[in-house]
Design a protein around this nucleic acid. Structure first.
Length: 225
DNA sequence: TGCCAGGCCGGGT
DNA sequence: ACCCGGCATGGC
């Protein structure tokens, strides 16, 4: 009989064969990944790219400069990412935290344990669980599994979790059944996003082309998402 | 042309 | 302890 562990690894292999390595994060450097993690909240990545491009052009991929920049101006620069006013605040909150507690040195912050880093990130208003885990996995390169809407949708569709499973429960499912390997966690989440984006849209039933369609699944799309 | 995208917070019940 | 509105741009 196949265990959850087997299923999860087979799903990984199927997605990997279909899409190939994703080599995330799609950005350049630790700070840019941190910024991207905030800007991509409920937002298409192509919009985030434009916002980051604006920051690059102004040489603002720099904690000190971001700490000192006026919030209204920052908001204007990240406008293409949507929710620009609230995201400017969130980015400011995080940058201020790093500036005041770690002298703006990311590596100092990243030397904390995963648990400590997560707790501190979650204490910043505007940084929720997914954003915190994105930063820990993709910027700090530490062991944590990222859960997002696609992960939830796919795991539910393939009957790995209950409809109302919360973030920590889904995270626990993956973390307790996969080998503790940062590179694996990195690729796994990225492949779930690739699969979700292309084949597991809202309210759409599973399709022939989905690399996961041979795995046990609900024929109907999940309620809501 | 309306719906959707790699969330999160804060206020109301 | 849930539930929900608000936040906003760009692609299809």
């Amino acid at each position: 009989m196949s265990t959850v562990r087997d299923t999860l690894m087979k799903m990984y292999e199927a997605m990997y064969e279909h899409f190939g390595p994703q080599n995330w994060w799609p950005g350049d450097g630790e700070l840019e990944i941190v910024i991207g993690a905030v800007l991509t909240q409920n937002t298409n990545w192509t919009n985030v790219e434009r916002a980051i491009e604006n920051l690059r052009r102004e040489n603002l991929i720099d904690i000190e400069k971001l700490y000192k920049i006026n919030r209204e101006r920052l908001a204007e620069l990240i406008r293409p990412a949507g929710y620009f006013n609230i995201k400017a605040k969130r980015l400011k909150n995080l940058i201020t935290y790093l500036w005041e507690n770690y002298q703006g040195e990311l590596d100092k912050f990243f030397s904390l344990s995963v648990e400590q880093m997560r707790e501190e990130l979650l204490s910043v208003s505007g940084i929720g669980r997914e954003t915190a885990d994105d930063i820990i996995l993709y910027a700090a390169n530490k062991q944590t599994f990222v859960i997002d809407a696609y992960t939830w949708r796919i795991a539910h569709r393939h009957m790995l979790i209950e409809y109302d499973a919360d973030y920590e429960a889904i995270k626990e499912l993956f973390e307790s059944n996969l080998d503790a390997d940062v590179k694996l966690f990195n690729e796994y989440h990225a492949l779930l996003v690739a699969t979700g984006k292309n084949y597991c849209k809202r309210k759409k039933p599973i399709c022939e082309k989905c690399p996961l369609n041979k795995f046990e699944h609900n024929p109907e799309p999940p309620e809501e998402m």
